[in-house]
Write a protein that binds this DNA or RNA. Structure first.
Lengths: 349, 349
DNA sequence: CTGAAAGCGCTTACAG
DNA sequence: CTGAAAGCGCTTACAG
């Protein structure tokens, strides 16, 4: 591998001079500049980014931390950040967090590796935050907040209310909630906030919250189980609000497998408005995912440039998108028949 | 920020000793080991990855290069690689290529930044390849091949044949092809190979290829235009094979917007079997995307460990998945009516 | 305008 | 078992 020393030798100059022409310093005579550039091209020299980073203290890359970054909602956020980053000359280091240990390691492993951090859904703990601050690494949060960090979020509580208000307006009275589990890996308190909105909407309608209608599961898993359980109740719900489209889509599948028709027999509302939701015809609370990425990236880029951030805590609007999975409650009110139930048992077996 | 020197000073030892305990060298007395570890914890010391990389020549990270990595098909491939990489302790550096310049810079920018490279769809050029080889950076290709590089691919030509054979078996005779444009950014010769399969299937059926039925466009764009053009022909096609699900889905939308019913009036076959395809009920040629990522990652990890790679060129199986967008050709044979056409004009205006 | 040298924060033979 | 020192490949004051 050709190094700067090799180039310097070949061009008959000092390494400092080579460094200067590479970095576009003006203090170089046109003649030497030309000669050095010639040698660089000839040798196909490319400066070692690691050495450069160590020397300058700048890595020219930003880290993006996200739990399960291949989830559709995260990807749609990334669709917003990638172009901005690419345009700014920063490299994108993606840290996928899929376990508690990875979450633990994520923030510390990035110190000295990145100039800035974009953290989706999860936020650094106090210790990491201090380290990050000491290292001068700006952090921007997407889908979570922190008293001392810029963030771009959405009003999840209001979103939850929107979803349930829609169901209430259709005439539903027994409305279930399917939430994502909140653990240290996912850290999705968004699900919890949406549940708060769910409860608030019910309360505002004068309806008592019924705990047997609230089901919390790891995201995307156990939907069949949830549905089976809910529909097995003496007074089964006629509709469900899922804290994410992923969850909602899984519920939709499970309900359909049970032989119920959506929305005639059962209504489903999701959250996010992921691309899939459109194809599935899912009624959902839409949040501008790509925009959240763009905004987050912009905030980070500003911090990186040392600019003042005028509005460090940005809120994005929510919108209810009514499609084909919600309707007034149908005639079916009792528990589902045994044949349908046996279908579930088969499935989970 | 605390450095190794600070820790050494605080612990009253040399930096070499600190380094040794951090790296688990056995040649350290239990007493000093304990003391150093104490100081490390107390100061919250984390070794600087950049300095470490420069010193050892190993970055402990691998680069993944992909054009438009947020495309569903690429994401599904990444779903295969992320867990493997995370499990191996390698960091994932993602290089999104969205322009010719980025493609140009992608490979060279990674030298000295990564220990290995996973390249999706695009392959390094001769110059980059040489540099990579000189730097000792192993490269593995996914969805493309190179005489000197390990790769995991699929038989696109055969896939194209499968799609068209299906359409032929249904009775279609005028079958169009919608391909992704092949440029230096995307470099998707997959589309071209699938077109080869398309032609081969037609030829095998004794049908002449009609060039006016072959449309090549940038992926995901211009589907409406393609459809309008095709259906405006004197002898319009009754079916289309799209080189990707993304393309197929766009075609589907365009056809539906024209007031045609799918599959009664028009059949559509895609390629990939992306998650969306299932929800859209798209008939498609399924390729194991996640598996391609897993295999690629495995190959790379093996190279990184210096192991011999038994089968450097892996082929994954293809499978036709028949869903709701294909059926025997219906009665509609003439050009579409003017009312329907005006709808298109509106749309593109 | 240019070279020699120090320094970035580690690791690792080399002595002892 | 441990310290001092060289070296990784750059950048950047500092002299000249």
């Amino acid at each position: 591998v050709t190094t700067i020393a090799r180039v310097a030798q070949e061009a008959g100059v000092g390494v400092g001079t080579v460094s200067r022409v590479i970095n576009g310093s003006t203090a170089v005579s046109e003649a030497t500049r030309r000669r050095v550039l010639e040698v660089v091209a000839e040798l196909g020299y490319e400066p070692n980014a690691t050495a450069r980073a160590l020397s300058t203290g700048r890595t020219r890359s930003v880290g993006v931390i996200a739990p399960f970054f291949t989830r559709p909602s995260v990807i749609e956020r990334l669709r917003g950040v990638a172009p901005l980053l690419a345009g700014s000359g920063y490299q994108l280091i993606l840290i996928d967090v899929e376990s508690a240990e990875q979450r633990e390691a994520a923030f510390r492993s990035l110190i000295g590796r990145v100039d800035g951090l974009l953290s989706v859904t999860i936020a650094p703990g106090p210790a990491d935050l201090e380290r990050l601050a000491a290292a001068g690494v700006p952090v921007v949060l997407i889908d979570s907040t922190h008293p001392r960090l810029p963030s771009v979020t959405v009003d999840d509580v209001a979103g939850g209310r929107m979803a349930v208000d829609h169901l209430l307006a259709l005439g539903h009275r027994r409305i279930a909630f399917a939430g994502d589990i909140v653990d240290e890996v996912h850290g999705s308190s968004a699900s919890r906030r949406r549940c708060t909105g769910y409860r608030a909407a019910l309360a505002a309608a004068g309806l008592a919250a019924r705990e047997e209608l609230v089901a919390i599961r790891p995201h995307g898993h156990g939907a069949a189980e949830i549905v089976e359980q809910l529909l097995g109740l003496d007074e089964p719900p006629t509709a469900i609000f899922a804290a994410s489209d992923q969850q909602a889509l899984a519920v939709l599948d499970a309900v359909t497998d049970l032989g119920l028709r959506v929305p005639e027999d059962f209504s489903v509302v999701g959250f996010d408005d992921v691309e899939l939701a459109r194809y599935a015809g899912l009624t959902t609370v839409a949040q501008p995912l790509a925009v959240s990425g763009t905004r987050g990236a912009k905030l980070l880029l500003s911090s990186l440039e040392g600019s003042e951030i005028p509005t460090p805590r940005q809120h994005l609007p929510l919108e209810l998108v009514v499609r084909d999975t919600t309707a007034p409650p149908g005639s079916r009110t009792g528990p589902i028949e045994s044949t349908a139930r046996s279908a579930v048992v088969e499935r989970s077996g």
